[in-house]
């Protein structure tokens, strides 16, 4: 075993440990912000795994998209939501937890059988690290053309949806004006119009 192999094995172990413990932290910690940050750690260690598999472009893309965008957006969502709510403890909450545990155990069993039944063949040939980008591009535009285009259509749909939601002038005026007023009013004593006030005042003095 030479130096490179040793480094690989050690970093594989470290990455695995980091990934599993961070993933457990994501699920088990109470503080949702910790979960979000640990999710970033999980994504980063997955990027490290890709790097170990000689997929440097995929690793960088993983870092850019999952850590740099998805995770930041999740954090944004968490930090911009400013609502503190006291949840009432559910009766029979254990049913949910039990169901989740059963589903997870089933998934785990499935994956484990898959891992055990797959005839893994370790290729000894050194894959070329020089042109991974080129290879990915070639695959995208030959045998994976349809999924690639479908994914781009999906992203386009998501973008159009986001623009539709973000554009204010497309949203129709819902309900009557009074309802709209209600929704934008501050919770304070409703004011009377000045004219009405003076009228009522003159009325009272007159009578």
């Amino acid at each position: 075993m030479n130096l490179a192999q040793g480094v690989q094995i050690v970093s594989l172990g470290l990455l695995t440990l980091m990934m599993i413990s961070a993933a457990l932290g994501v699920v088990l910690l109470d503080n949702i912000v910790y979960s979000a940050f640990l999710l970033g750690a999980v994504f980063t260690s997955i990027a490290g795994m890709y790097l170990l598999l000689n997929a440097d472009f995929v690793a960088a893309a993983q870092l850019l998209i999952y850590v740099g965008s998805v995770n930041v957006l999740i954090l944004f969502a968490i930090m911009l939501v400013n609502k503190r709510e006291d949840f009432v403890p559910m009766t029979r909450g254990w049913v949910r937890k039990g169901a989740t545990a059963a589903v997870c155990a089933g998934l785990f069993a499935l994956l484990a059988t898959m891992v055990l039944s797959t005839p893994w063949s370790i290729s000894e040939a050194m894959p070329s690290t020089e042109s991974t980008t080129l290879q990915i591009g070639t695959h995208f535009f030959t045998d994976f053309l349809l999924p690639f285009e479908l994914v781009s259509v999906l992203l386009l749909m998501a973008m159009v949806g986001a623009i539709v939601i973000a554009r204010r002038d497309i949203i129709p005026d819902i309900g009557s004006a009074s309802e709209e007023n209600l929704s934008f009013q501050l919770p304070e004593r409703p004011r009377e119009a000045v004219g009405a006030l003076s009228e009522s005042g003159s009325d009272s003095t007159g009578s």
Binding site: F37, G40, T44, A60, A61, L63, L64, V67, G68, S69, N71, V72, L75
Partner: peptide, 9 residues
């Protein structure tokens, strides 16, 4: 580019 996107976290 991908590394510089980590800083905001």
């Amino acid at each position: 580019i991908s590394l510089s996107s980590v800083a905001p976290i």
